[in-house]
């Protein structure tokens, strides 16, 4: 019965989704719009003669797999680092006696504020001083620092929702802080961590300013720097630009599809 009634949502959601997708379809359409036949149909949304020439061009002109590997080497470690350190920090702030807790939290929020364009020069100087110029490690560490505040905020919200009795019981049983964190809280944080993984993937996968400035060797360059050569003053290759940007978006969408499965397990059930 319940299931049937809820299907009414389709009447609202389906048209809304179609409308919502128009710009996205246009992005795909542009990526399939050949240079030699630039005509469009349907008010300019779709190309009149779609083909894959832009994708072919992008693959032909760039070592996409090398760039992909570099992007993964930046994104995966920074996601792991943020998940781990973010959960630990969130746990400490949610359940432990931390001196100057409000100050510490305020300090962490600072990290959310900084726009990349305003700090790239300073971060560059730090990495240069640390000997991390032209290295992926420096980029991973910077992204982790910038992504941690978000992780802390959202994971902490989840940890706060875990009933206090669970925590007290574990303390009484003599579990160490680490055990409480690792065995009880960390697994319960899954829905929040799904969001964190998505966020951090977006952050480290999509940024291009820092790698642009910090990396010197062309074989360390991540995917996000590829679009830069298809765009700009006196340069018109929007088809190729859209093609590479569509390609770049795919892994993030996949991450989303995988992670959103973890947004189903009710916390209440897990605690009981």
């Amino acid at each position: 019965m319940k299931r049937d009634r809820s299907q009414w949502w389709h009447l609202v959601l389906a048209p809304l989704a179609v409308l919502w997708m128009v710009p996205v379809i246009m992005v795909l359409g542009q990526s399939l719009r050949p240079v030699s036949q630039p005509g469009t149909i349907l008010f300019g949304i779709l190309p009149a003669a779609p083909n894959l020439s832009n994708y072919a061009l992008v693959f032909e002109q760039n070592p996409i797999l090398t760039h992909l590997r570099n992007s993964l080497l930046i994104t995966v470690p920074s996601v792991l680092l943020v998940v781990m350190l973010g959960s630990m920090t969130a746990f400490a702030l949610a359940r432990m006696r931390v001196p100057f807790k409000a100050v510490v939290f305020g300090f962490i929020v600072l990290g959310l504020v900084l726009p990349m364009s305003g700090i790239v020069v300073a971060v560059f100087q730090i990495l240069q001083t640390m000997g991390l110029y032209n290295s992926l490690v420096g980029i991973v560490l910077s992204y982790s620092a910038l992504g941690l505040p978000f992780a802390v905020i959202i994971v902490r919200t989840t940890y706060l929702a875990v009933p206090h009795e669970t925590f007290e019981a574990a303390r009484v049983d003599g579990a160490s802080w680490w055990q409480i964190f690792w065995r009880i809280y960390f697994p319960l944080g899954r829905p929040a961590l799904a969001v964190v993984v998505i966020w951090q993937t977006m952050l480290s996968w999509n940024d291009f300013l820092l790698p642009l400035v910090v990396l010197e060797s062309t074989n360390l360059v991540p995917l996000t720097l590829v679009p830069l050569s298809y765009r700009g003053v006196f340069l018109s290759q929007p088809g190729a630009l859209f093609a590479i940007l569509v390609l770049i978006s795919v892994p993030v969408v996949l991450t989303f599809v995988v992670c959103q499965r973890y947004l189903v397990n009710g916390l209440a059930g897990a605690v009981k």
């Binding site: 350190l85 973010g86 630990m88 920090t89 400490a92 962490i108 600072l110 900084l114 560490l141 910038l146």
Partner: peptide, 14 residues
């Protein structure tokens, strides 16, 4: 629990 995070912050945010 906090040290690694604060360390990263001291460098890349402060």
């Amino acid at each position: 629990f906090l040290l690694p995070t604060l360390g990263l912050f001291g460098v890349f945010v402060v």
